[in-house]
Simulated scan of single mutants.
Amino acid sequence: MRVSVPATSANLGPGFDCLGLAVSLKNQVIIKPAKFHSVSLKGEGSNNPALKDNNMFISIFNDFYYNLTQKKRHFRFEFFNEIPLSRGLGSSSAVIVSAIASAYAIEGIKVDKNKLLNLSLAYESHPDNITPAVMGGFNVACVQENEVKYINKSIPKSLKAVIVVPNRPISTQLSRKTLPFKYSKEDAVFNISHSSLLTAAFMSENWDMLKHASQDVIHQKYRMKHMPELFEVQKTSLKSGSLMSTLSGSGSTLFSIAYSEDANKIEQALKEKFPHFRVFTVDFDNYGVKIEI
C-alpha cells in the first residue's frame, strides 16, 4: 500500500495558527509485510541517518497499529520525500497524518478524514498544518473541545505557488520564543480584520484582494529578523507580480501565490536575485492525504 500527504503552508500572513493550504509537493510511503523490520529513505532527508534510526513515522505507526490489532508485525517502509525538512512546509504534519492513515489502511480499516484529522490533533495541537494535509485546498480551522472545526475550499488551477526555500532553517521553537508575550489591541484588531478579509478573498475567489489581506503584524517581522534576506525575497516576489507573499509557517520558506501566467516570470526574478536559495513553482493540492492499496 502507498500513502501520500501534501506539503502545507500555514498562517498565510495574518491567519496565525488558523489558516493553511496544501501544495503538490508530497511525501509518500510504501509499506509491505516483511520478515524483518527495514527502512529505506529517498529524497529529502536521505542523507540524514538519524531519520532512519529515530523515525517519528514508525513510532506513531507502531502505536496505532498495536492499539488497533493487539499484534506486532514486521514491515518494510519505503519513504519518498519531496517536502523539505524544517523549512515551514509541514513536513512534521505530513509524517503524523501519513503514519496514522497507514496504520488503519494496512489492516483494511476505513477511517474517514474527519476522524483522521482529529486523531492527528493529539500530535500537532495547531490545526493550520494538519487540516490542509488531510483535506487539501485552503482551510480555515480552529480547535474547540479537542476537535478541529474547519471550512475547506478548493483552489483553482489558474493559480500557482512560487516557493523559495532558503539554504538554512529557522527553528520553530526559537521562532515562537521571539514573539512578543503581549500584543496591543490595535495589533490584534489589525490581524483579525486582515485574516477575515483573507478568508473572504479565498472563499469568493477575489484574488486581487490577497495582497491587501495578507498583511500581518503579529509574527512575520519577528521571525524574519532571524534571516533578514527574507524581507528582500518578499519584496522581490510582490514587485514581480505575486498576488501575495508570506512566510510559510515559522519559516524559513517564503511562499507566494501567483496567476499561472505570471508564475514563471516571478520564479526567474527570484532565481536571479537569490541564486543560493531553491526557487520553484508548484500546483496546489485539493485532495490531501491519499491512500492506495
Score class of each variant (00 low, 15 high):
2 R>Y: 10
5 V>A: 06
9 S>D: 06
11 N>F: 02
13 G>E: 04
20 G>L: 02
26 K>G: 00
30 I>K: 07
36 F>H: 15
36 F>V: 15
39 V>S: 07
40 S>W: 03
42 K>H: 15
42 K>W: 12
48 N>M: 12
50 A>T: 12
50 A>N: 12
50 A>R: 14
53 D>I: 04
55 N>H: 09
61 F>T: 07
64 F>N: 10
66 Y>T: 04
69 T>H: 05
69 T>V: 01
72 K>P: 00
78 E>A: 09
79 F>K: 01
81 N>F: 08
85 L>Y: 07
93 S>W: 11
96 I>M: 10
99 A>G: 00
109 I>V: 13
118 N>W: 02
123 Y>K: 11
125 S>V: 06
130 I>K: 11
134 V>K: 04
140 V>Q: 03
143 V>C: 08
144 Q>E: 15
145 E>S: 15
145 E>F: 10
146 N>I: 00
161 A>N: 14
163 I>L: 14
164 V>D: 10
165 V>Q: 13
167 N>M: 04
168 R>I: 08
175 S>E: 06
179 L>M: 11
180 P>N: 11
181 F>C: 10
191 N>V: 00
191 N>M: 01
197 L>H: 08
204 S>V: 08
205 E>M: 09
206 N>A: 15
207 W>N: 09
208 D>G: 00
211 K>S: 15
211 K>L: 14
215 Q>Y: 00
217 V>M: 06
217 V>C: 13
219 H>K: 04
225 K>I: 01
226 H>I: 05
231 F>K: 01
232 E>K: 05
243 L>T: 02
245 S>W: 00
248 S>E: 09
255 F>D: 12
256 S>T: 04
265 K>S: 14
265 K>T: 15
270 L>G: 08
275 P>W: 14
277 F>P: 08
280 F>N: 14
280 F>D: 14
282 V>E: 12
286 N>I: 04
286 N>C: 09
293 I>Q: 13
